[in-house]
Amino acid sequence: MLFDELIIAIMKAVNRERTVSSPFHLIKGKKSGQTIQDIGYYGLYPYFAVMPQLDKQAYDQAVAGLFARGLLRQNDAVIDLTDLAITSQTPETPLNGWKYRGNEALFLNRLSLIVQTFSHISQKVNIFDPVINSEDIQSWVKTYLRKHNFRDPSVPSEFKNQLLSSLEETMVPEKHKMILMQRLSGLGYSGLTWEQIAAGYGNTPLDVQLNLIETLHAWMQVIEQNRYPLLSALMEGVIQQSSLTESAQRTEKLFARGFSLEQIAELRQLKTSTIEDHFVELAMNDPYFNYSSFMSEEAFQAIVGLSRDQQTKRLRDIKEKLPEVTYFQIRLALAIK
């Protein structure tokens, strides 16, 4: 998948219901109520937080390219795709952003430093400048290396075998795997920059970054099967254990203890709107969420029915037809739906 294709895939799901900047926030993994609820409303789980370091200027340049290619119409209010974009094929992708939420970078940083270390140690070179400067990563890798007796010549060899075997199983194009290899450093070889790799393939730096993330997500799925123990250890803390954000989990615990929305906001010293975001997130992820504390059955059915009949999830459109309900109730009902 190319970066333009990623943007179009998201825009097709929210066409004429969200602004042009909404895919940017989703790709970066913004934990706002709007972004979190859109993931559930529109089934955008694969794309969440796949590029946490995405630069707004780079995103805007990509969007400008979509306008130039006739895929977007000018519309100051919402995304307005042309028929050319709507009928375009969305490529299959192994992206699983909701599961990893940017933590593939943690896996890759550990891998990069381990590969660099094995490359030097196996050639009797004990002093080198680490490619990863993070003290936390360095400390983790030192513990990992000691645990696996890294000075035993068989360990680097086995690590390499497991790396190549697991990558062989990973169902992504060979080009994607090569991008991963080109980013790694070893004795006498420095990993290439995004610009260098992109130039070699005739793509943009954002394209090759996305290709690498696809590779990592697909690869980690293979590693999770625990058939490659030297690599499985690198997954520590990488997988998102809860479908909820940490803040929403704290709200959930207080609600389970009987505190109301207003009381939770006061206890946590947060805005009421922030706690409302948490309840929308809870409703989106809990199939047994009880909404009776927040709206009547009649209000719930009216919102869901109108959304279905009008084929819209745009809050303003629903509010205009049902002025008696609140925006929070609309968001909650749609999340439950």
Rank of each mutant, 00 (worst) to 15 (best):
residue 98 W to Q: 06
residue 159 F to T: 11
residue 14 V to P: 03
residue 174 E to L: 15
residue 314 R to Q: 14
residue 165 S to K: 07
residue 190 S to Y: 01
residue 110 R to C: 02
residue 102 G to A: 10
residue 243 S to G: 06
residue 287 P to N: 11
residue 50 V to I: 15
residue 141 V to P: 13
residue 192 L to S: 00
residue 239 I to R: 15
residue 326 T to P: 01
residue 226 N to L: 13
residue 44 L to E: 03
residue 315 L to E: 14
residue 22 S to V: 10
residue 265 A to C: 04
residue 210 L to G: 09
residue 126 N to G: 08
residue 24 F to I: 12
residue 246 E to G: 07
residue 264 I to D: 13
residue 299 A to T: 02
residue 61 Q to K: 11
residue 14 V to K: 10
residue 307 S to I: 10
residue 233 A to P: 04
residue 45 Y to M: 14
residue 28 K to R: 15
residue 208 V to T: 14
residue 205 P to A: 09
residue 260 S to Y: 07
residue 199 A to E: 15
residue 331 R to A: 11
residue 116 Q to I: 00
residue 330 I to L: 01
residue 8 I to Y: 01
residue 304 V to Y: 01
residue 103 N to K: 14
residue 26 L to D: 02
residue 336 I to A: 08
residue 143 T to I: 11
residue 126 N to Y: 14
residue 100 Y to V: 04
residue 296 S to Y: 04
residue 312 T to G: 04
residue 104 E to Q: 14
residue 268 R to V: 01
residue 26 L to Y: 06
residue 44 L to Q: 11
residue 37 Q to T: 04
residue 31 K to C: 03
residue 5 E to W: 02
residue 258 G to A: 07
residue 319 K to L: 15
residue 39 I to E: 06
residue 70 G to V: 11
residue 215 T to E: 03
residue 130 P to D: 09
residue 228 Y to K: 08
residue 20 V to A: 13
residue 128 F to C: 00
residue 311 Q to L: 10
residue 51 M to T: 13
residue 198 A to P: 02
residue 187 L to A: 05
residue 245 T to H: 07
residue 185 S to Y: 00
residue 250 R to H: 15
residue 163 L to V: 03
residue 249 Q to V: 08
residue 154 S to M: 14
residue 263 Q to K: 14
residue 107 F to E: 00
residue 292 S to R: 12
residue 97 G to K: 02
residue 312 T to R: 04
residue 141 V to A: 09
residue 172 V to E: 08
residue 247 S to D: 04
residue 22 S to P: 00
residue 310 Q to P: 00
residue 224 E to V: 02
residue 329 Q to I: 08
residue 325 V to C: 07
residue 223 I to E: 03
residue 65 G to F: 05
residue 284 M to N: 14
residue 84 L to I: 07
residue 297 E to P: 01
residue 164 L to H: 02
residue 332 L to A: 03
residue 235 M to H: 02
residue 55 D to A: 12
residue 239 I to G: 04
residue 289 F to C: 07
residue 270 L to V: 09
residue 35 T to S: 03
residue 17 E to H: 06
residue 23 P to Q: 10
residue 20 V to R: 13
residue 100 Y to H: 05
residue 238 V to T: 15
residue 59 Y to P: 06
residue 182 Q to V: 00
residue 287 P to E: 10
residue 20 V to Q: 13
residue 264 I to G: 04
residue 292 S to A: 03
residue 102 G to H: 08
residue 327 Y to A: 00
residue 19 T to E: 10
residue 214 E to F: 08
residue 6 L to G: 12
residue 87 T to L: 12
residue 208 V to Q: 10
residue 201 Y to V: 06
residue 92 E to F: 05
residue 82 T to N: 10
residue 310 Q to M: 09
residue 143 T to R: 14
residue 230 L to G: 11
residue 176 H to E: 00
residue 283 A to G: 11
residue 105 A to L: 07
residue 4 D to T: 13
residue 310 Q to R: 14
residue 145 L to I: 05
residue 144 Y to D: 03
residue 267 L to A: 08
residue 136 D to M: 09
residue 53 Q to P: 00
residue 331 R to H: 05
residue 273 S to C: 04
residue 329 Q to F: 08
residue 74 Q to W: 06
residue 324 E to D: 12
residue 21 S to K: 10
residue 309 D to L: 10
residue 42 Y to V: 08
residue 93 T to W: 00
residue 134 S to E: 08
residue 244 L to A: 00
residue 334 L to W: 11
residue 1 M to G: 12
residue 334 L to V: 11
residue 19 T to S: 15
residue 215 T to C: 07
residue 209 Q to S: 12
residue 262 E to A: 09
residue 137 I to M: 11
residue 211 N to Q: 15
